[in-house]
Amino acid sequence: MRFERVAKRYAVGEQGPDAPAAVDELTLDVRAHEVLVLVGPSGCGKSTTLRMVNRLVEPTAGRVLLEGEDVSTVDPVELRRRIGYVIQNVGLFPHRTVAQNVATVPRLLAWDKARTRTRVNELLELVGLAPDRYAKRYPHELSGGERQRVGVARALATDPPVLLMDEPFGAVDPVGRRRLQDEFQRIQRELGTTVMLVTHDIDEAVRMADRVAVLSTGAHLEQLAPPLEIVANPATPAVADLVGRGRTARLLSLGRLERADVTAPPPANQDGGTAGVRLGDELAEVLDALTRDSAQALPVRDGDAVIGSVDAEGVLRALRRLGVVEEPATRP
């Protein structure tokens, strides 16, 4: 997808066409097969930006391109059948079963019954809902997380090249939300779908994204970068304010144990068994392991080989490498 100087203005009272823009000349590329997350404060234009892709909102100026084609030249009904769309409250048809909800677009496209049934069963398996248990249930018989999974399955029914997600996990409890995020990441890796996701939650953004687009009022692009860079090196005060005080904790989850953080030799009395951590583990996992085992240091493995050890100082060095902890002052 590509946004070329896209703008959206709404007439407000007597201000007319000079009203402040909800989206003000946004230029942005979404790469094939990536998860791009739009994050920012309420009212910054992130949902408006998303909805201009499937023409639920029409731009005032500029162009939105999907696979090189200007979406304004495509029939909106046909366009929406090519684009998956998932919203916070799912929007399942209450009088239809799970299977019938998932089959909505295939039926509109006149797929035969056998092909539709096969695809529905594949998708229910994909989102972790066994067809024999869930296909004949109705939405009111499902939990919030289960309904959200059905919504994802319905959006993926015809293998759309693009999936739009607007606060998709916002109505789910924190534990269910984390599970849904994990499940969705697994599905996206398996299918390689290009995803644009809107959230107001910076933790969800850095957890889910390949790249994060931080927006301010008018969909002004404050920073576009991988999650680690957003957290470690905020480009503007607005980004720093959004990242907030949880910066170190987020970097522990984003950062990985590297060879530069490992010391040699391995801790004494280690036999190369299962205890320890691995090169590439999250720094948060390394710190948890040190705390859980009350260990001064733990062996580090690369494959089957023990290559050295890591201690709390190694985790601190990693945070310094990421730029979140300053080097200690040198004594005169």
Rank of each mutant, 00 (worst) to 15 (best):
P20V: 10
V23T: 07
E25L: 06
T27Y: 00
R31A: 15
E34G: 08
L36R: 09
L36S: 07
P41I: 00
S42K: 09
S47G: 12
L50R: 04
L50Q: 04
R51H: 09
L65Y: 04
L65E: 06
S72C: 02
R80L: 06
R82F: 02
I83A: 05
N89A: 10
P94E: 03
V98I: 05
A99W: 00
N101G: 08
A103C: 06
T104G: 00
T104N: 00
W111V: 09
A114Q: 14
R115Q: 14
T118L: 13
R119L: 07
L124I: 05
E125M: 05
G128R: 08
A130H: 13
D132H: 14
R133Q: 15
R133Y: 04
A135V: 02
K136V: 09
R137I: 04
G144N: 03
Q148F: 04
V152N: 06
A157K: 04
M165D: 03
E167K: 10
F169P: 01
V175T: 10
V175F: 07
Q181I: 08
Q188F: 08
E190C: 12
G192N: 12
V195R: 11
M196P: 01
M208H: 10
M208C: 12
A209I: 13
L215Q: 06
A225T: 10
P226R: 07
P234Q: 03
P234M: 02
A235Y: 02
P237E: 02
V239C: 01
D241T: 11
L242D: 00
G246P: 05
T248I: 14
T248F: 00
E258W: 00
E258R: 15
A260M: 11
A264P: 01
P267D: 07
T274W: 08
R278F: 09
D281R: 03
L283W: 01
A284E: 13
L287W: 01
S294H: 15
P299A: 14
I307K: 12
S309R: 14
D311F: 05
A312W: 11
E313R: 15
R317H: 14
R320V: 09
R320P: 02
G323S: 12
V325A: 06
R331P: 12
P332F: 07
P332T: 13
